[in-house]
Design a protein around this nucleic acid. Structure first.
Lengths: 154, 154
DNA sequence: TAGGACCTTCAAGTGCGCTTGAAGCAAGAG
DNA sequence: CTCTTGCTTCAAGCGCACTTGAAGGTCCTA
């Protein structure tokens, strides 16, 4: 982790909790992306990206001299993380709270850690539930006639 | 599907795709429950139970001579299954569709099986995603200072 | 037979997570 | 220079899954 940060652009490897899941290939080699590029890359819509920024779920996004958003790799990392958190079922309001803690710097490490631990607990519980559900589904599928390709059976 | 209607207590094991997950202890020994009892047992609210019936997500619930709902063990089994399906993220509309197929009898076995197989695929994918997320969470928790009880670290 | 808790229906309201519309500014191609 | 495409803001709208409110009937206990 600790941020990529080659030569062009990018900010120094400050605090930040980001930059863990940056495995995806980036839209291009550089560090400036339009909202459309980010939308394509993340799968979020452009309005959603604007909305995320508006509610404080994004760090302040850089702007061009004329006011257009310029996302960078850090933003992409953050969005990848946010998308993971959404996947766990975490409400947007909670993610905004987390983003606020990130903004407040290292002093909030303990609190952030606690939030993520709680989230981890919930994810583990969720996985267990889904695995139970898998068994239920399997037994019902069997009940309906397990034969793979058979189109009917009654 | 072939109404309950026996004397007291449970019906014969007809068609039905229900009755797999009936492990829970029932509110009492008999086979007639008020909406309040069912609400407590299932964790769904009474309005939600009425709404489920209204949209066709429940089989027609028996009524007392004065019009009050009388749920039975079959209804409880069905609700347990529905709750599982909800847990997978299946939209209510899709569950209504499934309930319709159940009402149509054995001729829809193949289609029901296909739906559940698709659901199973989705659940498996969901579990995989959540497990990936678990790794991300763990690496971030470590980043924030893995020490269990340490309240700060910067 | 009165009171209170619980049931009924129907319709409207709520909260969440976006999405869409309106009106206008900006960047690049012909 | 215009034209198209894409960006901007702000506000309103939407779909889903319930929830709540209003008005009234029912059950049960005292």
């Amino acid at each position: 982790m600790t941020v990529i940060d080659s030569s062009p652009v990018t900010s120094p490897p400050v605090d930040v909790c980001v930059s863990v899941g940056s495995a995806h290939p980036r839209p291009d080699g550089q560090d400036r992306y339009t909202i459309r590029e980010v939308a394509e890359y993340t799968g979020l819509s452009a309005p959603t990206l604007r909305w995320y920024e508006q509610i404080g779920l994004m760090p302040q996004v850089r702007r061009s001299p004329t006011g257009q958003r310029l996302f960078d790799n850090r933003d992409l990392d953050w969005l990848a993380f946010v998308t993971r958190l959404r996947m766990t079922g975490m409400p947007v309001a909670d993610m905004v709270r987390f983003a606020e803690l990130v903004r407040q710097g290292e002093a909030t490490f303990a609190e952030r850690r606690e939030i993520l631990r709680q989230t981890r607990r919930e994810v583990i519980a969720r996985i267990a539930e889904l695995q139970d559900t898998l068994f239920v589904l399997e037994s019902k599928i069997d009940f309906y006639g397990g034969a793979q390709g058979a189109s009917e059976r009654a």
